[in-house]
């Protein structure tokens, strides 16, 4: 039987998107009362919840304390019901650990860490449903949560994946496309300055195609940024409206 046709001749992907189109992104900020900042992001069927605590005094081993900057502590976990087959361990497996590390690196680059020496920021990310692009959705959610927490950052961190399918670069790949075995490029960047914070590639891609895929991912990140920015501004406006009305 013929396998899946990831990109049809008419230029449509398996879910009806064109190669350059993102999935639908929906987000909410301030979903938790307890955490300093929190956000919920849906990227297509990938759903992620992020919570940020801090900055606060270092918890746990004090040895981790950095005298000149804040310690960013991340935890990435996937709900047991998030994947097709139930996961045994929500966190702590190799993949989650790797993801945790990546998140940490990403945000160390974006948060103005020197402002809070000797303290710690916790970022908790939980994937509720996974349909490809977990890292990207996690980064986007965590960014919103950090903004919600009022922690200073250089810029948004926007992440987007891209792949190269049937000689075409495609952006924001879903699980089906991800598992097709073609190369997956994951990029997290500061969209305004176009500085790349994290770039990861799974499986091989020919050098000639790399720039095409990178361009696609960059464009994807910028699109993500405009969506997130709109959401943040909306959140801000409505909250300020509340505050204003109470002050008067």
């Amino acid at each position: 039987m013929a396998g899946l046709e990831l990109l049809s001749d008419q230029g449509f992907r398996i879910d009806g998107r064109r190669p350059h189109e993102l999935r639908r992104i929906q987000c909410r900020m301030g979903v938790f009362g307890q955490a300093e900042g929190s956000a919920y992001v849906e990227q297509g069927n990938t759903k992620v919840l992020a919570a940020v605590y801090g900055p606060h005094e270092i918890r746990g081993s004090r040895g981790k304390m950095q005298p000149d900057k804040v310690l960013i502590n991340c935890q990435y976990s996937m709900a047991t019901f998030s994947t097709g087959e139930r996961k045994r361990r929500p966190r702590g497996d190799r993949k989650s650990q790797e993801m945790t590390k990546h998140l940490q690196q990403t945000f160390e680059a974006a948060v103005l860490t020197h402002l809070y020496p000797r303290s710690q920021i916790d970022i908790f990310v939980e994937v509720l449903q996974s349909d490809g692009g977990n890292y990207c959705a996690s980064v986007n959610a965590a960014t919103l949560a950090i903004i919600d927490a009022g922690i200073p950052m250089k810029d948004y961190v926007c992440a987007c994946s891209a792949s190269y399918i049937e000689d075409n670069p495609v952006v924001d790949i879903n699980y089906l496309e991800e598992s097709s075995g073609s190369a997956e490029l994951i990029m997290a960047m500061l969209p305004k300055s176009e500085q790349i914070v994290l770039l990861q590639m799974n499986s091989r891609l020919h050098e000639d195609n790399l720039s095409k895929v990178m361009d696609m991912a960059t464009q994807g990140c910028k699109d993500v940024h405009s969506i997130l920015d709109t959401a943040v501004r909306e959140h801000l406006t409505s909250s300020i409206a509340l505050q204003d009305s109470s002050v008067t």
Binding site: D15, G16, R17, E21, R23, R24, G44, N45, F81, T83, G84, E85, Q129, D131, N174, Y175, L176
Partner: peptide, 27 residues
């Protein structure tokens, strides 16, 4: 330009497998 509709399919394959698919409808 993008209209989307999400539906969930569930298939049984020995163990229960959750399948999430998206299907974007366009104009």
């Amino acid at each position: 330009m993008l209209k989307s509709k999400i539906f969930l399919k569930k298939t049984k394959k020995g163990s229960i497998l959750k399948v999430v698919r998206e299907h974007y409808l366009r104009d």
